[in-house]
């Protein structure tokens, strides 16, 4: 690098540039927080949905599936599972019917032995998720 460009100048660009873009990022975050209520389907977050989210977490579903495209890539996207599986009944039926020892030779989902209430909560959570405004993602129903 040229001699005319000194270490002090480089340092100032680092501090000044980082600070500027950090503040800009915080401003964008602030604006996003303001815009979210119209997009994030928060009016649908009931006790049931919150319970469903907790169950989603403590069973580590994200360790195999993606949710809105984030997670693991071993099993199907679930952000639109409510639509793909035909509503709550489809989701509940699928989760309930997993064989305990899996399907020989194939990737299998564990049998979690959820109660009916838990199954309902998970389905409610996935219903809420499917109604978040994701700018039309995924491209089609296959996720």
């Amino acid at each position: 690098m040229s001699e005319a460009f000194t270490k002090a100048m480089a340092r100032n660009i680092f501090y000044g540039g980082s600070l500027f873009f950090l503040l800009l990022f915080l401003a964008l975050t602030f604006d996003t927080e303001g815009a979210l209520p119209d997009r994030d389907n928060r009016q649908a977050i009931t006790e049931k949905v919150a319970m469903g989210k907790r169950l989603w977490e403590v069973n580590n579903c994200i360790g195999c599936h993606t949710l809105l495209g984030e997670g693991a890539y071993f099993a199907p996207e679930l952000g639109n599972a409510y639509k793909r599986l035909g509503g709550k009944a489809g989701i509940i039926g699928f989760i309930k019917s997993r064989p305990k020892d899996g399907i020989p030779g194939r990737r299998s989902m564990p049998q979690f032995n959820f109660t009916d209430e838990e199954l309902d909560a998970i389905a409610e959570f996935l219903k809420y998720t499917s109604e978040i405004n994701t700018a039309n993602w995924p491209p089609n129903i296959q996720g």
């Binding site: 996003t32 815009a35 997009r39 809105l68 994701t134 993602w137």
Partner: peptide, 8 residues
């Protein structure tokens, strides 16, 4: 990371 997760 904020394209498709419900953010503006």
């Amino acid at each position: 990371h904020y394209y498709w997760i419900g953010t503006p």
